[in-house]
Design a protein around this nucleic acid. Structure first.
Lengths: 207, 207
DNA sequence: TAGATTGTTAATCGATTAACAATC
DNA sequence: TAGATTGTTAATCGATTAACAATC
């Protein structure tokens, strides 16, 4: 059942989950089909069925997938049974926006600690959290067994932060710093850089 | 030379460009190699050479790539010769953070207009820009021939905004709203949703 | 010259799609 | 029953990698 699922398949599961939640909130039917999901997401129905088949048999011939049931299955597969506590490093304007974002909790994550090293920021309160000095990083991560961190620092600070996070037991990092980060095998890093996204699209535009 | 380059290749060019800039700023050598670039980025040297070969011959046997020259070539390929003006929709905390972000301009983009529909926000000044009412969206986009927009609105507003943007001539959209958006062929949409990224990584974590 | 590195070819690897028997 | 849709197989399609002649 769970042999070695391609990363690219895992990456689509949260998209399926998000669309299923939307259908659930719409609240006008109990079931959906690979065809309907695919239509909404611009993905082929065959791909959706194939992706799901890596994990089990969740549908019924003739009727499709029970929305609530498939949501529960995906939540289990993605380890979203409880809310993951997250540490945020960087209390600039992006870090602050993330700290106030109310979309994390209902989808399985919660920023619980914020770090910065600017004297003008340490001690400030952001969304009921007090900004911690960077010196506290290692102790806080390891004492609280935090697995996930978000980096919203300037690029020049990010690699050192990653090293310190990994040294303290962090296993997954979402980085908003615009550079490639290096980490040992088994540490998951994911990137969000608006400029690389815009540059990818500007290729297709007439200049 | 430029036949039909796979999207996945285009997506790597901004990453190469970003690393080349880093090498340029380091300033201690004039050339690099596919091997060195690959080492830094966790990409095979063969892939880098193959990707670049879609667009021409930029290197020299024995010495590799002249950093400044390759940067210029990539800038041309990606249409980064001038700064693209960008419209931002949504002046919440994320929109505000994006409006203040100083990393756009040096890499080819500049947010020049901000829209929102909240009476408390319209008319406010954010980074020297006055927040425009949403009614002005269509006229501003078409009169200024804006090609690129960034959406930082709540999910429920995003699809209608996309429709209006596309109707006014927008060709590329970067969306921070956590849902799939539909647009006609030829319109490029790129997504940034921190939660789908975190969910992808939580699959690999022990819960 | 000897060593290094490109651009390219062919082979390999992996992902997507089409098609359909099974069955609700 | 007839229609719909699954899960799966095999075929197709596309991307990555290994290898090397060319040459700086």
């Amino acid at each position: 059942m769970t042999h070695n699922i391609p990363d690219i398949v895992i990456g689509r599961l949260p998209i399926y989950l998000r669309e299923l939640r939307r259908l659930q909130n719409e609240g006008n039917k109990m079931t959906t089909s690979s065809h309907e999901l695919g239509q909404h997401l611009g993905i082929s129905s065959a791909q959706i069925r194939k992706d799901l088949s890596h994990f089990g048999e969740f549908g019924k011939q003739g009727t499709g997938y029970h929305i609530n049931y498939l949501i529960e299955q995906l939540r289990q597969i993605l380890h979203l049974g409880t809310v993951w506590p997250v540490a945020l490093i960087g209390a600039g304007s992006l870090g602050t926006a993330l700290a106030y974002y109310d979309g994390f909790k209902p989808r399985g994550f919660e920023i619980r600690w914020i770090f910065d090293n600017a004297p003008g920021k340490v001690g400030n309160e952001i969304n009921s959290m007090v900004v911690q000095p960077l010196e506290e990083l290692e102790d806080t991560i390891s004492n609280n067994k935090i697995a996930i961190a978000i980096i919203a620092t300037p690029a020049r600070a990010a690699q050192e932060i990653v090293d310190r996070l990994v040294g303290s037991g962090i296993k997954a990092v979402l980085s908003y710093a615009p550079l490639h980060l290096t980490a040992p095998d088994g540490i998951h890093i994911s990137y969000s850089d608006p400029v690389t996204e815009l540059q990818r699209m500007s290729y297709y535009l007439e200049s």
